[in-house]
Design a binder for these strands. Structure first.
Lengths: 208, 208
DNA sequence: ATATATTTCAAACAATTATTTGAATCTGTA
DNA sequence: TACAGATTCAAATAATTGTTTGAAATATAT
């Protein structure tokens, strides 16, 4: 429990930024929650914007370390796809309400800044590349780059909806709750939708 | 060109709010662009928050009026699905870069406020209901509510990805441009993915 | 133990910004 | 024309907030 002020600031920062956004969050709030003086932020990080950026990458790196479970490179592309979808959807029930990084991502999508680039490089692009590899294996060999890309986007789009559209979901389907059971059903659903699409693509290319 | 100050304010508001978000937007900016005095906003709308809300619903209602093209209630559920997807995707190329309302929606998703409720009631729920009806027709009769819902979400998720993840897309696939041609291909793709999933669902229910 | 560097803190600073105010101007009406 | 209400405007207000400052406290190294 001997964390430095700098660490305490970094830890207090993310959930407040995630909850209220960069602009609405005051350095006072963060400093208070960290039990630190206001000027500690400028002392350790220079200014608010840089502090925000450092806090985000700090937590991204940390969450990457935590989620480095075996990737089972060997298994079939089908089960690797399922696994990727599961990892993404599971964030909802595992992270419970928080999902700080996803909320930050939302804000950066609505209002892109320098932090968006860091998020893309640190965890979006790697995951997208992994997904693309899987789809390349699954789809017919004569699929174009564009076709593969569209199938990848279909996977991401379906997953992200549940991660990012919670405020819509809770209003449109108040009884819809993503518990452990629903999570499994979602993973099954999205996986079979994507695999059905893959099968249809094979069918189409066979006819030609 | 004889628009009242109130109208000029409403028209100048949305794109600035969409671009910078509620908090970052200053009433000064909007008043300047409208060629109005700052106090006009408080005079006509009471305060900034209410002005923001009124501006959003004003433009939602207006855009609903503009997009009230024939809905062809009679045609097949397949073509109605395709049509719904097309309408949604076409926003990108039709609205060109702006897409003010979608940007506002993004911000409300990242940081929900009273405006989110109005957006849900005014155009999200109606569209969702329409989609649900279509999916009910397409899917096997013994599909559960939950299954139908998941299929609907798959449609929305895929569409919304292109509407909302532009900042990610432009970074991850700099050469990916959604022009007229790509729009058509996207509509085709999403439609066939969803119909393939529907077909698979029929297949599954037949076996049981 | 002393000197040096680092870190913390309360207070001040400077800039921004939503909102109010009260006079001036315009608009329609009798 | 003259009057009443609505609207516009420049200026003032009040509150917030990121940043700076310089002294005090703490840690580090000699």
């Amino acid at each position: 429990m001997s964390s430095t002020t700098k660490e305490k600031l970094l830890n207090s920062a993310l959930d407040i930024f995630a909850e209220s956004g960069f602009k609405s969050t005051t350095v006072q709030q963060i400093a208070s929650r960290a039990g630190a003086n206001i000027s500690a932020i400028n002392y350790h990080f220079g200014n608010k914007a840089n502090f925000y950026a450092e806090a985000v990458v700090h937590h991204i790196k940390q969450s990457i370390l935590n989620n480095q479970d075996g990737d089972e490179e060997s298994s079939s592309p089908e089960s690797r796809l399922r696994n990727l979808i599961k990892q993404r959807i599971t964030i909802i029930s595992k992270d419970k309400p928080p999902m700080f990084i996803e909320k930050i991502l939302m804000q950066e999508m609505a209002n892109p800044g320098p932090v968006m680039d860091k998020m893309v490089e640190h965890f979006i692009r790697p995951e997208f590349n992994k997904l693309t590899e899987i789809m390349e294996e699954l789809l017919p060999d004569d699929c174009t780059e564009s076709e593969i890309r569209r199938h990848s986007f279909s996977v991401i789009g379906q997953c992200n909806f549940y991660l990012h559209a919670q405020p819509i979901l809770s209003r449109i389907c108040p009884n819809f709750e993503i518990n452990q059971n629903e999570t499994e059903q979602l993973v099954d659903h999205i996986t079979s939708v994507c695999l059905a699409a893959v099968a249809a693509e094979h069918e189409k290319h066979r006819k030609i």
